[in-house]
Structures are given as structure tokens and as C-alpha cells.
Design a protein around this nucleic acid. Sequence first.
DNA 1: CTTTATCATCGTAATATTGCAATGAACAAA
DNA 2: TTTGTTCATTGCAATATTACGATGATAAAG
Lengths: 109, 109
Amino acid sequence: MGATKTDHFTLQQNELASLAKALGHPARIAILEVLLKLDSCICGDIVNELPLAQPTVSQHLKELKTAGLIKGNIEGNSICYCIDAENWNKYKELLSAFFGQLALKTNCC
Amino acid sequence: MGATKTDHFTLQQNELASLAKALGHPARIAILEVLLKLDSCICGDIVNELPLAQPTVSQHLKELKTAGLIKGNIEGNSICYCIDAENWNKYKELLSAFFGQLALKTNCC
DNA sequence: CTTTATCATCGTAATATTGCAATGAACAAA
DNA sequence: TTTGTTCATTGCAATATTACGATGATAAAG
């Protein structure tokens, strides 16, 4: 064991969990914050901003890309990463809807 | 290696990542959905709702509790779990603020 | 006191994640 | 062509997560 039983849960549950998992590392939060802050998309400058080696950052970028949170464009020699605005807003709604489910009444505990 | 370099990131980054990590499993999403749906707080009925063994569910509950997303009260023989409304709304704001950072302009990629 | 029910904890196996050195691929500049 | 720059990929070691059987703790029921 050790493998998540993905097929036992609904698509929505897996989708939300998958998004959260991608956000579940401080380095990936930091990467997203860098991309949010900058007007122009930078490339390998992300590596310089983080206390991690280049392969490690590259790996985190890959995960963020797989999750759909960022996009990457080749620009000459270097590569330009930025937030995937469309998915970003979709995920924003998804999380907002999830957290908005709580009824206003005081809980029993 | 294999350990996250928590001390290299800011408190805010770690806090957000920690919350996301707690949400990063379909079983934990499912548990939260059960607790959100029910008026009265149930206890071990959560186990019956999920395709997982009791110790596994108990472990997930512990993680959600540690993250501050749920609370647990002893109620006679059984235990009553429910959403921690105060933290829930705090986290809602936290995520909303994070996702709200995206500027409206079209991205360069 | 004994039994049953409910839930947590322990121990362990399987798998996933994190991190980096080494290497590779692609392109620009000399 | 050779060199340097940029980033991805590979391979590996350390650690974390997931899952569950077995067991323990606690309280209600008999």
C-alpha cells in the first residue's frame, strides 16, 4: 500500500485534491508568488529567487504545469513561465465554492 | 533528502502550503464534504461513507484536525467531528486572497 | 465483572515526494 | 566549430505518505 485509492472517489474530489496537492509545497507557493508579482514573465530568474537547486525548481515547475496552474513558452534560449490565467480563475471558483459550503450556524462541537 | 526545506520559506508560504497539503487527498476532501453536508455532527458514520478502513480514516481525521480544519468532541461512547468554522473561514480568506492576486491583464504566454 | 461498540495508536509494507549531482538537449555567441 | 547559457531529464538517496491488520483504551450495555 501507500498508493492513493483514486478510483474510489469522485472526479470532483480527485480534481480538488489534485489542485490542493500541487499547492501543497512552500516552494511551489513561492514560485507562484514570483509569477504573480512580475509584470513580465521571467524565466530562470525563478531559480535565483529560490533557495533550491535548478533541477529541483524545474521539477516543481513541471508539477505546477501538469496541474494547469502555469504555462511555459520557449523564448529564444530561455523559457518564459507565467500563470495560466484561465485555469487560475477556474480553480479560484472551485475553491471558493468548496469553502462556501459551510452553513452559517454555529457548529455543535 | 526528501524532506521539505520548510525553514527556507516564509511563514505565510508554509502556512498556505500546509493547508493545501491537508486538502491534497481525495479521502480528506470526502470527509470534509460529509461534515459540510450534515446538520448534526456524526461520528464514526464517516467510516461507513468512505471506501477505506477505520484506521485509515482515523489517520486522515487526525491530519485534518492538526491542520485546524475540523474539531472533535467526545460524546459518550463515540466522537463527534465537525468543521472548525472559525479556522474554516480564515482559510477561506487566505485562499481567496492568494488567488485574488492575479492581475486582470492578459498574460504574456 | 464481562461483553460489545467506538475510536485511537502501533507496527509495518508499499508507494510517493523531495532534493540534488550529473548529464543531455537546444540555442546563441564567438 | 567551439564555447557558454539555459533549462529538462536521469538516477539515486533520504524522507514522507498512504493503507491496513492487530492491538489498546474507554465507555455503554448486559
